[in-house]
């Protein structure tokens, strides 16, 4: 297509939007509302996943060493653990440190721990964190076989259940998103179909004059793209603004729930909403046109 033809296409698209201004507003509104719903779900899903992730990442392996092993054996074990490819962080915790931590934990009620410094019943050990939390399940049992290791703990039983729950959460979030995107496509395609239907006579005339399918299609595609873009920009703006506002409030009032930081997270959300909204506009108009191009 030549440049002047593109000018004609966009002129057609915009004059059609101006002429059917009510339909244009309705379509933009539909896209905006659908994208807001989708956006809210994206935010929920992202925060849910983030929450699940932050719980999972607290999963670590505690290794307790036999009392009688030497300094060299400890160093050797540290080196072996560090070389394991699943392991991200290896931290040595001496029994003195463990006691201090315990005392912190009990705070004012730590009196009963008094005197233990002299005959510390705790054991030296390591804390391991893996690159991915689920690697804990496979890794932990093998660690027991190392020389000098007395005991391995990773919250056996609890961790398996936790992973099962977070797994379900992820699947539910994904399913909701796919369902919503499908519903959004349907609603938007239907809205555009109304405008296309109103112009089926014009499309028919164009075919008789010898216009190619793409010549007829492009103004509709540009129109759908513009409607989708404007609608999703409105939605993305509202979503970003309200998330940022509620983040500031929630972080203070409910600090227990780990929320995803607004930036750069919102950039991604805005990007996705605009991309999806625009694509839906284009797909909606192309799909709706197909039937009327068969002349």
């Amino acid at each position: 297509m030549k440049i002047r033809t593109w000018g004609f296409f966009s002129g057609q698209a915009f004059s059609s939007m101006r002429r059917n201004s009510w339909m244009t507003i309705a379509s933009i509104g539909t896209v905006a509302v659908t994208m807001i719903v989708l956006g809210v779900f994206l935010l929920l899903a992202a925060n849910l996943t983030h929450w699940a992730g932050s719980i999972e990442s607290q999963v670590e392996i505690s290794i307790y060493l036999q009392d009688e092993i030497t300094r060299e054996q400890v160093d050797e074990l540290a080196q072996k653990f560090t070389q394991l490819e699943q392991v991200a962080v290896v931290k040595y915790v001496s029994k003195e440190e463990a006691l201090l931590k315990m005392r912190d934990w009990y705070g004012e009620n730590a009196d009963f721990l008094a005197g233990l410094e002299l005959d510390n019943p705790l054991r030296n050990g390591f804390k391991l964190t893996t690159h991915r939390p689920d690697q804990v399940l496979d890794l932990a049992p093998t660690l027991r076989t190392y020389d000098g290791v007395a005991e391995v703990q990773y919250g056996q039983g609890m961790v398996e259940q936790l992973f099962a729950v977070t797994g379900v959460l992820r699947v539910v979030a994904l399913a909701l998103m796919i369902g919503l995107a499908a519903a959004a496509t349907f609603i938007i395609a239907n809205t555009i179909r109304i405008t296309v239907f109103a112009r089926r006579r014009e499309i028919n005339i164009m075919k008789y004059v010898g216009a190619t399918d793409w010549f007829i299609r492009w103004p509709f595609v540009i129109e759908g793209m513009t409607l989708g873009l404007i609608g999703s920009l409105v939605a993305a703006g509202l979503i970003a603004w309200s998330y940022q506002a509620s983040f500031a409030k929630l972080v203070i009032s409910v600090p227990v729930i780990p929320l995803v930081n607004p930036w750069p997270f919102l950039l991604g959300i805005v990007g996705w909403l605009v991309l999806i909204g625009t694509t839906l506009g284009v797909v909606g108009s192309t799909v709706s046109l197909r039937r009327f191009l068969r002349v």
Binding site: R201, I205, K207, V209, A211, T212, D213
Partner: peptide, 22 residues
């Protein structure tokens, strides 16, 4: 083929009973 039809129609000017104007 479907995509060749427009080029045929450009060789045939058409006028109908119902005018078919925009």
């Amino acid at each position: 083929r479907r995509n060749e039809i427009p080029y045929l129609r450009r060789q045939i000017g058409t006028v109908f009973q119902d005018f078919r104007l925009m």
